[in-house]
Design a protein around this nucleic acid. Structure first.
Lengths: 331, 331
DNA sequence: CTGAAAGCGCTTACAG
DNA sequence: CTGAAAGCGCTTACAG
């Protein structure tokens, strides 16, 4: 038992295997990477030795030589309220999973409001090969920063910025669909509650809501649209108002809102869907919790896992210099 | 606009500043690190140049030279059910925050059941200086692995393993306290619902539950203890049984369970605390959601943020070779 | 107080 | 097909 605390005190290096095999480390390197010409027999000899003595290359050293880190950054908002949405958690999982498969790791970082210092640190410290932006806002400072510094990055969710690679569910169309569905069902008196207009997602959903009305030639009742609702008190108030206005269905822009709405209704002894119907965009674990109470909710399901995985794949392709499609809409 | 996708294409290096100043890079290095003798005037000259031209050292290169990465690994269970507990999320945040302050970053990795391959990859790839284990199980394979490979690590939560640095809330005593409180309040007919016995936390809590009974000379009703309850159906059944047994209060071992219990009760039109009382250990966002429905729940609050921050601090101290207290119980 | 040199563990033209 | 050498951007004895 050695007393130092250093990781891997007795790691074997490329020099060791070169010496042991009586070849140059160039050769060993080539056997591993598969790049450059190398004799078939030599290669297998090296490869065998390597797996027997289970040597594994020092990724950091490789990184220094190739200007890569084999890390990607996953940047999420540092705001507790937003963070509770299981969306990020699920994303992180699927990103981490597919990163692992490609021998990458993911560094998580936060951005707090307009303070992107953590992001900057990540970049100036050369800690990552690229960034996945979990949420973007209008006129996003992190997007500007990444663009200016030529850092490969993709965004989860749509942004209006030019030339940004974005992975998204098709919120606009999904929302058009959901709204249309409700309207066609004959539910005309709709209410809408949504979070910060600052988030592009919410904007897209709002647009979809409006669009559905246009397409079906219905008039939008703007009085029943509550945006920028960020706290529970606000939700309570919105629900009170909507009920007073006699809406038949409340559409919630995200599941966090939906959850609170349901809670509020239950406190008021209102039954769903008898007294008022509820619809929501993507369904998370929060929704699962509610679903056990058998409340019938119309909701649209997005495949978050696929989103994370696609984002990760795309970013790595991008950072390794491959071509990628600039906009990818899923589901 | 240059067309390569490489991060920081035109980064300035230590050589550049050495050349510009007509000193050796040794000197520049010393000015930055503060190690080794260096003239006062020289130091400030270097430091000034650096901040003006905002040079920042390549952490990767530094890492290669010093065998460090300035990354720490945060390892969480890859199981969705467990993961939904906001505990990990909050931990991640506070760890990430304090890591940032110390110029470290955090790589998130998962371990799936007994499969610790992701962890192994992280270590053999030299990606981190140490590990924070978010949850440990009895006879934990990751602990064994880390121990064998002399990797500095700390665990969140208690483990029985020898010589493991652990940061924990004092679950045992907290549970003794909570249980005693209930017993002394005159609530004698208690029920307990807990998750996998495999997790040390649950064990500690269970022990605390028993201990409280012993201390107050009460007999434990083992029929009303439901452990290894992992799914909603199980919780439903446990609640049904407990109600049938006429318990006055149900203690939930974690808030995920508590949440489901509350849901189940509400479906059964049981009122809390009129019909049955509820107590729970640590209160998360899940609980906040419930608290708006004004259900009176007795619960113990732990400071997760402090836990994460302490863990991070301790790990970094450990990995940098400093002395640390082997066991730290908070709150 | 300062610097030349070797080294961290890899990769990759270049030459043979 | 293979190797010697330079280089990635730092740190750190060692010498002066």
């Amino acid at each position: 038992m050695d007393s130092t605390n250093h990781v891997n005190s007795n790691k074997i290096t490329i020099n060791d295997v070169a010496d042991a095999l009586g070849v140059s480390k160039t050769t060993v390197s080539r056997a591993i990477s598969g790049k450059g010409r190398i004799g078939n027999e030599t290669r297998t000899r090296v490869l065998n030795y390597i797996s027997e003595h289970n040597y594994s290359p020092n990724v950091i050293a490789k990184g220094l030589a190739t200007s890569r880190t084999y890390n990607i950054g996953f940047v999420i908002p540092g705001d507790y309220r937003i963070i509770d949405i299981p969306f990020f958690q699920k994303c992180l999982f699927s990103i981490s999973e597919t990163a692992s498969e490609l021998d990458y790791d993911v560094i998580v970082s936060t951005i707090n409001g307009n303070d992107i210092s953590h992001l900057e640190r990540l970049i100036t410290n050369h800690k990552v090969d690229g960034i996945i932006l979990a949420r973007t806002v209008e006129n996003d400072p992190s997007i500007r920063y990444l663009l200016e510094n030529h850092v490969p990055f993709v965004t989860l969710g749509t942004t209006d910025e030019e030339g940004v690679v974005q992975i998204d569910n098709d919120h606009f169309n999904a929302c058009v669909e959901l709204t249309s569905l409700l309207l066609l069902k004959g539910i005309t008196n709709l209410g809408l509650i949504g979070g910060s207009k600052n988030h592009v997602v919410n904007h897209k959903r709002y647009d979809g809501y409006i669009k559905a009305h246009e397409k079906l030639d219905r008039t939008v009742n703007y009085e029943n649209i509550y945006l920028d609702v960020n706290n529970m008190a606000g939700i309570d108030r919105a629900v009170d108002d909507l009920l007073e206005h006699g809406v038949h269905c409340i559409i919630c822009m995200d599941d966090s809102i939906c959850h609170h709405v349901l809670n509020k209704l239950s406190r008021d002894h209102m039954l769903v869907p008898q007294d008022v119907k509820i619809a929501s965009f993507y369904d998370s674990a929060l929704m699962e919790i509610n679903s056990i109470s058998n409340t019938a909710i119309t909701s649209i399901k997005f495949d978050i896992q696929e989103m994370g995985s696609t984002a990760c794949q795309t970013l790595i392709n991008l950072s390794e210099g491959r071509e990628v499609k600039p906009i990818q809409l899923l589901g």
